[in-house]
Design a protein around this nucleic acid. Structure first.
Lengths: 377, 377
DNA sequence: CGAGCTGATGGTAGCGCTACCATAAATGAA
DNA sequence: TTCATTTATGGTAGCGCTACCATCAGCTCG
């Protein structure tokens, strides 16, 4: 009696024996049913069912020097934005044989490199990574990964392989222009922790204001004051925004620029905080003060007044990334290396100083919004 | 010349050759350095570094009939609650050899079973699953999984193996009692999609009101009206709550019970919607109407007025689940099978009808809150 | 001083699957 | 018919690692 180390689960050989075929035929039938004749396929299916056979993925990966793991790196799990992206990814994967492995980089390049190295041990079928600001080592790993690599949530002239996202610069510029058109003149930029995408937004904001001759550095807190505020100890080191941060940052900005009459917030969570700060101070929105956010999360529509925002297509980005990945794995041609999914400027009450929206519909929920597409969709 | 199928990456044999030792010694040195003498260990480490050797996880998993994958099943990626749990899990895993594989069940038992079956193919090192309402098939898979299984976010007398969570019933009951003590008498229960945990909360709410002789079925919309509202098409089928839902549900409830003077919301997102609905109607909170939520997400503290909520320890649940898992994997004793991490009742302005909080601190941010622990921590 | 033990190291035979050929049967072209 | 080509199936040798012995030096102990 040979000393088997197996754990009792049926193997492909058991299935083959039961179906009266060679094990390689079973392997083929399971991978691509069309490779096997109908008669044998049915026998094999029956044997699989009877034995409750479940393929061992490690063995498959080892034998084929390729796993079914799709590695996904996101900078945050807590932010809705990336949760939406992940949902798109899971939806795109559907019931295929591919499996998702998520890594959370926490906006830390070293951590990203570590996770990337970890993922590569699996010899993944593909990689989906957020953004374009990898470290040189990370970039090198991606280029040597020997599998499709899709970058997401930003644009770049020089993607590793393919990139799907939108221009944060253009989106922010468009929203800032909307604020200008709505009659605001002293428009601030409210930001928490800055990352490369935030920087793109800041530059779009600056560009719009400079073109209108309205730019004033005093109106932006970006990065500058965060250290001091963080030192006050009210925020943890996780680099995500909270509404409390929004309130504190707005208060800070007002201290410096008391005549500020609107803010463009780097994200919706900060915008929500800004709205509450206005409520608490009895400042009327949009009459006295305009507020715009970025991403158009759920609560923006529900707020009172409803908050304007830049709608970004996170689900679509995640979904399309997987579709592109699968296409590359199937050897199909996959079009452009750079895909711009665009954005929409959603104009709601919080920036409607001119009263353009009133009368556009009943004042009930959902409150009226004017949606304007942007980017090269 | 033998036909090798390798992809050129160095293997353990290459390292062994370079270090002048047997390959099994390299294997041991990599898994547990203490098994090898210092001299050889150093030689091996050097060889690993020089060759840039990276262990192949598939081969390891195949040979040891055990992988380093920890499967995690959550019902939603979009809800902050589970994002926080995941963060705790990732933090608990830290830089160990374990790897997380997340599955999103979308509150669908069939999908959960499918994901579970998928995870078992990896012969995972451990499993972390949300809740106790598995299907019979799912439960059976967990019991036959042949690895530690930790259930989280609820309590049960009969865990598969170990459960870490808190009592939704007790938490809801405590918050409802707080509303009663604050002087509210017609307290509604506002809920979107119900799951087993929501049902626990509902029962706690009912019990508190019945004990006070205040229960009235007209005051709860739970489940009942959702079908009709969903049919109106304003919500998608993903079973998560939005602030817009909160507004609509509150409006609906008011239509039925115009004398309602407070709501206990099944989650914070609905509570936020309720607050906005009050704003929009010019109803003053907490004077005319009290609002309480569940989970104490970031924005509750920042809202104006600040919103009362039940603080749940999601991060801790995730973190402790991993710690327990690791302990079991290391063969250490692991204490109780049922761990109650408790909850806190966070009393803020939105339920402060009696004015107990005013003067407790400056009216600035963060607004004062009275926090009361609950559950058997 | 040999039996028995411990601790470090190595050889070998799997783990369960698939790549790579070989083979056999069926089909088509000449 | 004959030979080339395609289609369906199988045998075998890995994939890279670890479980399971075996070995051997050093050491204790009766």
């Amino acid at each position: 009696m040979s000393k088997r180390r197996t754990d009792g689960r049926p193997t492909i050989a058991d299935v083959a024996a039961r179906a009266g075929v060679g094990s390689i035929t079973v392997s083929r039938a399971l991978r691509d049913a069309s490779l096997v004749s109908d008669v044998l396929r049915e026998k094999i299916d029956a044997a699989v069912r009877e034995l409750g056979y479940v393929p061992n993925l490690s063995a498959r990966a080892l034998a084929s020097t390729r796993s079914d793991v799709v590695g996904v790196l996101v900078p945050s799990l807590t932010q809705h934005i990336f949760a939406d992206v992940l949902r798109g990814i899971y939806d795109g994967i559907g019931k295929t044989r591919l499996n998702i492995q998520v890594g959370n980089t926490r906006y830390d390049l070293d951590e990203e490199d570590r996770l990337l190295a970890e993922l590569l041990r699996y010899k993944p079928a593909g990689l989906i990574v957020s953004g374009i600001d990898q470290s040189p080592a990370g970039r090198a790993m991606l280029e040597r990964a020997n599998c499709p690599v899709i970058q997401i949530m930003d644009l770049s002239d020089d993607p590793v392989n393919k990139i799907i996202g939108f221009s944060h610069h253009d989106a922010a510029k468009a929203m800032t222009q909307h604020l200008i058109e709505s009659g605001y003149r002293r428009i601030g930029f409210l930001s928490g922790w800055m990352n490369s995408r935030s920087k793109g937004r800041l530059s779009g904001y600056v560009e719009a204001l400079e073109e209108a001759g309205l730019f004033d550095p005093a109106l932006t807190n970006a990065a500058g004051d965060l250290g001091a505020l963080a030192a006050r100890g009210s925020w943890d080191k996780h680099q995500y925004s909270t509404p409390v941060m929004g309130r504190e940052l707005l208060a800070d900005l007002w201290r410096r620029a008391p005549d500020m009459d609107a803010v463009f917030c780097n994200n919706d969570v900060l915008a929500l905080g800004a709205l509450f700060e206005c409520h608490a101070r009895g400042i009327s929105v949009p009459g006295d003060f305009g507020i715009a956010g970025f991403n158009d999360e759920d609560f923006m529509e529900a707020a009172s007044p409803a908050l304007s925002s830049v709608r970004t297509h996170r689900w679509k980005v995640g979904h399309d990334a997987v579709v592109a990945l699968r296409r590359q794995l199937d050897g199909e041609p996959d079009g452009e290396r750079v895909v711009d999914v665009g954005f929409d400027i959603v104009k709601r009450a919080s920036t409607d100083r001119l009263g353009l929206l009133s009368g556009m519909g009943e004042a009930d929920i959902p409150q009226p919004a004017a949606v304007v597409g942007g980017g090269t969709v």
